[in-house]
Nucleic acid binder design. Structure first.
Lengths: 102, 102
DNA sequence: CGGCTACCTTGCGATTTGCAAGCGTGAGTC
DNA sequence: GACTCACGCTTGCAAATCGCAAGGTAGCCG
């Protein structure tokens, strides 16, 4: 998996390097608004992300400190994903995007 | 140039279908904050977008009603791009992204 | 006209995507 | 323990997209 080089110091460009694609923010949306937090639940969202892309994006988001993975203590097969504080801070971005489209 | 199929009714997904890539919002940023409005100026921004990608993204943004192209009356070679109202409405999205990265 | 500039377009190799199938481990059942 | 399924990935491979470089067309400038 190629690591994105930082293209410029512009904060907007930095943000886009981290989640400037058609899938990353949908995962954050699911975590914030749709109560989805497992691999399977993300994969079953309406937009039908492919599982390899999903695994890649979850890895990147984790690497960027936006989400955290934890084993489910109740079921060792499950991995529960959760937003970090940095991830929660993306809520206004998603909110503005939703407002714009509406 | 493939037209994106609408993947779901979610307003966030709709937004991402239109500008969910690493370049589209940088063009909007240039128009909003950097006083850039011609092809050459966009191409010379720090992030160094390739010219074929730039032409493609400008076409998509125009198709989405986010930017408008006009011939420069003073110089027939130049094409001046400008944001539509719909394009200006993206300012809060970019602002939140910049705040998040900072 | 001749040279220059602005805006694209084309060719093409490299990367990324998307679909499907498969794998490994843990849970539940007997 | 053996058997079966569920979950979270990984792999293979064709197709689409990207990015670099080069070319092409039309307008300006002398």
């Amino acid at each position: 998996m190629a690591r994105e080089p930082r293209r410029s110091g512009c904060p907007i460009a930095i943000s886009l390097d981290l989640f400037g694609d058609r899938w990353s923010l949908l995962i954050v949306r699911d975590l914030l608004f749709a109560d989805r937090c497992t691999f399977k639940e993300f994969a079953e969202a309406d937009e039908r992300i492919a599982t390899n892309i999903l695994a890649d994006r979850l890895g990147r988001l984790e690497g960027a400190g936006i989400v955290e993975r934890r084993a489910d203590p109740a079921d060792g097969r499950k991995v529960v994903y959760a937003l970090t504080d940095k991830g929660f801070d993306l809520a206004p971005v998603l909110l503005e995007m939703a407002l714009w489209a509406a």
